[in-house]
Computed example of a mutant assay.
Amino acid sequence: MKTAVGSVIFEEASKYLGDFFESLETQTDQDFSVILINDNISSEHLENIIAGVSPGLKDRLYIGNRNGKKLSPGMLRVELLQEAFSLKTDLLIMMDCDDKASENRVSCIKEQFDPVYTFFYNELLDFDGKSVMKQLPAYTLDYRDIGQSNYLGMSNGAIYLKGISQEFIESLREGETRIFDWYLYSRLLLAEKKGKKIAGCCTYYRIYEANLAGKCEYSKQAIEKEIAIKREHYRLLAPYATYYKNMLEIYSSACAEDFKGKETTGYWWSLTDIQSDEE
């Protein structure tokens, strides 16, 4: 099975690329290539960064340059999927370039791979080794599983590209959104693709105060941000299912005061949680 680790790299995170590459160099299974989509790192700076990469990994490194195209983060991720697909990659293991992988991440995903499933996900830990969110479910089989909150990200995910088409990847360009990860996995589930948790490995996730996802901590500002995000998310997905139309209608009139005292599930976007009529 042709496997690649893929990421989008950009100048603002370039200081973390040393950690990123080191976590790939120390993988117990080295039978993979690396696909990078370069957003805005200059050729000279990128050459200096790559100079520090081990020869063995450097020989397996492919860089798709998107410098100057000024693509959004979501569209850069579509470019990554398209690039991996065009390179005839079977399994794309994804990771944000400011994160790190446990040394057995590639091996665990390969060992637990099952072609019945189209996407796979593993635990997220912060750099202190603490879980970022509560225990992840063993399987994700329905779009409603992530209807109101999300635990599936690019950095802890992998996609079996033989389970989707190039047309499907191209259609993801409709998802011009700040929360592309949530959109991507929702679209996969809407297309009746299934997800499986990979046990025994993790991604180390770097959390910033400015992160769009951030931490699941209650504040009026966090609630207002989440309502705005959900309106955007449900509007994009409304053409695909009545469920999302209902959720959009509910959140169109929602305000922060509606969610005082709500308990979070520990997933992204779980500070608000309301009931919706099903189809």
Rank of each mutant, 00 (worst) to 15 (best):
E224N: 13
F85V: 00
E111L: 08
E103P: 09
I63T: 10
V53E: 01
Y240G: 02
S219N: 03
I227N: 06
P115N: 14
L76T: 04
G195N: 07
Q148S: 10
G68T: 10
E11G: 06
S270Q: 13
R235D: 12
G52S: 09
L136S: 09
L81P: 06
A222H: 12
K245F: 03
Q27K: 04
F120C: 02
C108M: 14
N156F: 04
L71Q: 07
V34G: 01
G266E: 05
F10S: 09
S171R: 06
K70E: 14
N104S: 13
E47S: 15
S155Q: 05
I63D: 10
G195V: 07
D29I: 00
K194T: 02
Q221A: 12
M95T: 13
L271S: 09
R144K: 15
R178P: 03
I179Q: 08
V5C: 04
L172E: 07
Q221R: 10
F119Y: 14
L71A: 09
D128R: 12
K134A: 11
S219G: 01
Q27A: 01
D145T: 05
E176D: 15
K2G: 00
I9K: 05
A222Y: 04
S149D: 11
S86H: 10
L212P: 00
P55L: 03
W269N: 14
E192W: 04
T265Y: 10
Y234M: 05
Y139V: 10
D277A: 11
K100L: 07
Y62F: 14
K58L: 09
Y234H: 04
F21V: 08
E232A: 08
T28N: 07
